[in-house]
Simulated scan of single mutants.
Amino acid sequence: MAAALTLDGVSKRYGEFQAVKDLSFEVEKGTICGFLGPNGAGKTSTIRMILGLQGVSSGRIGILGSDDGRKVRDRIGFLPEERGLYKKMTPVDAIAFFGSLKGLPIGEGRRRAKDMLDAQGLGASKRKKMKELSKGMAQKVQLIASVVHRPEFVILDEPFSGLDPVNQQGLEAVIRGLATDGATVLFSTHVMQHAERLCDKVVLLARGQKAFEGTVSEARATAPRFLELEGAIEPSAAAGLPGVTGVEVVSDFGGVRVLRASLGAGVHGTRMQGHDALKAAFLGGLDVRRFELREPSLHDAFIGLTGDNPDIDQSVKGTGTEATR
């Protein structure tokens, strides 16, 4: 499958701060790719370089067959993390205006705006001013404004930030719809659950560097399954069970604990390890009141791939390499 986006050895420095280091990955056409990492990992700096809003310190970026996002900007839709629409405009006017900046005639923009607002349940708000809308409504309007020109590539920077669960679910449906219609979607987030539900592929970023690139299933396969045990169980006793490589206390109320016992790296063979550990727990007389063999989440994989502190200092001071903007 052809790539809509390619990054090859991309780095970005701001003075002595290394925001992005030797980053390489591809996003295939028509797919949804999650660009994941904690705040400060380098996601927004990377997005700005992809869009051509700032230059790379080194490396190469190709998007929609161009070496500069500015050359194909009318084929790109972008929802920035920092939202902003003219407060005295109506949603229809705001959407049509942003569409006109991408070459869409105002009349066609207004027609599409009305249809898209109706589809998102905002038909009754067409004639209100933006300042009268709720945050969730305003965010939907801004998303529509970023895709009203029907872009081939859509970039969403923390699109779920500040939304309640109902609006998050609605936004997930919009993202799926974009891909169904043939668009390529790259969205950044630090909330792994959205990526688990949406993505064909994920790129995990930590300390400005790629920690993983692949499918959600492939990412989760890097983390161990675990056995969750509840009862009056000492962590040291759980740690001594066969196949257990580590124990975490999830909760502890009056000596009744929920323990998470890791069962080794990877998913192959861990179901039998879980059975062996549970059998040993019962034969050993441990007070097991509830148990569950659980699959690792994408969050578990991220912690395993990046460590507990994925946002430590990224200074390049003293490396002998001259930093450039």
Rank of each mutant, 00 (worst) to 15 (best):
A3W: 03
L7V: 12
G9P: 02
S11N: 03
G15Q: 09
E16Q: 14
F17Y: 13
Q18W: 12
K21V: 08
D22L: 09
F25Y: 08
V27D: 00
K29I: 07
K29A: 15
K29D: 14
G30A: 08
I32W: 00
G42T: 10
L51E: 06
L51V: 09
L53A: 12
L53D: 08
L64E: 09
D67M: 07
D68Y: 04
R70Q: 14
K71F: 01
R73N: 07
D74W: 06
I76N: 08
L79M: 14
E81A: 09
E82T: 15
P91N: 11
D93R: 13
A94F: 10
A94Q: 05
G103S: 04
G109L: 06
A113G: 07
L122N: 12
G123R: 10
A124E: 15
A124M: 09
K126G: 03
K126R: 15
M137V: 07
K140V: 02
K140I: 08
V141S: 09
V141I: 13
V141F: 03
P151A: 09
V154P: 04
L156S: 05
E158D: 11
P159E: 04
G162W: 03
Q168N: 01
I175C: 03
G182F: 00
V185L: 06
S188E: 07
T189S: 15
T189M: 04
C199Y: 01
K201D: 02
V202N: 00
R207G: 07
Q209M: 13
G214D: 04
V216T: 06
V216I: 13
A221L: 02
A221R: 09
T222E: 10
P224G: 04
E228S: 13
E228A: 09
L229H: 04
I233F: 03
L241G: 02
P242N: 08
T245V: 12
E248N: 11
E248Y: 01
F253W: 06
G254H: 07
L259D: 03
R260D: 05
S262I: 00
S262T: 12
V267E: 13
T270Y: 02
Q273A: 15
D276K: 14
L283K: 15
D287H: 13
F291H: 15
S297E: 00
G304P: 03
L305I: 10
L305D: 07
N309D: 14
P310W: 08
D313W: 06
V316Q: 11
K317G: 09
G320M: 11
A323W: 09
